[in-house]
């Protein structure tokens, strides 16, 4: 059975064809779930985010102009769903000092061997504000002006949160290195 094209998928979904909707979901679910995991604090929140995001995708599919990539469009909706969820919460993480950051245990794996799960765990360990800014800047590729308008904060806030997120990730990666080396030394 041939794979449906994006256009066929969209048209089927607009006709409320259940099979097309499921096909669209299955095609993008894995990638979008990874996106949601990056923005969420834990898996349950990511699942809620993904459910809400896909409901919005199906609701707004009529507005998708088929001149771009459907995946990019779905991803944007997921990111905006995550941002909306984040904006509902206050921007209190801005006031967090590094000393007060929650300490999440990170798997002792060599940096080179860090897989998706470990990287996701590192990102998930960031406070909400840092995580959102880091995701938007480092992975989605938005600049600070765009992030500031999306999150409703100042550009300087976005910059400082990104810097703190990077520093925190660096510290954690460094700690992973140390743990790994110590482990290797004790093996000898």
């Amino acid at each position: 059975m041939r794979e449906l094209t994006e256009r066929e998928l969209v048209e089927g979904c607009l006709r409320e064809d259940r099979r097309c909707q499921e096909a669209l979901y299955k095609r993008y679910a894995r990638r979008m779930y990874a996106v949601c995991l990056r923005y969420a604090r834990h898996e349950l929140e990511a699942q809620d985010m993904m459910q809400e995001g896909f409901v919005r995708v199906f609701d707004k599919l009529g507005g998708f102009r088929q001149d771009g990539s459907l995946e990019g469009w779905v991803r944007r909706i997921m990111v905006h769903t995550a941002i909306n969820q984040y904006r509902r919460k206050s921007f209190q993480q801005e006031r967090f000092g590094l000393e007060k950051l929650p300490e999440d245990p990170v798997a002792a794996t060599a940096l080179a061997e860090l897989g998706e799960r470990e990287l996701l765990a590192l990102v998930a360990g960031l406070p909400d504000g840092y995580r959102t800014v880091f995701n938007l800047f480092a992975i989605e590729g938005y600049d600070h002006a765009e992030i500031a308008s999306m999150l409703g904060c100042g550009e300087s806030t976005s910059r400082s949160q990104l810097a703190k997120a990077r520093r925190m990730l660096q510290e954690r990666i460094h700690a992973i290195h140390l743990t790994t080396h110590e482990g290797k030394a004790s093996d000898r």
Binding site: R30, M50, L114, L119, A138
Partner: peptide, 24 residues
């Protein structure tokens, strides 16, 4: 740091639980 995470996560895929589709 950005490059490490971008390379690792930009095309990341994780299987979501079946309950998500049921919820949708």
């Amino acid at each position: 740091i950005d490059d490490i995470f971008r390379r690792g996560l930009a095309a990341a895929e994780v299987e979501p639980p079946a309950s998500v589709w049921a919820g949708v």
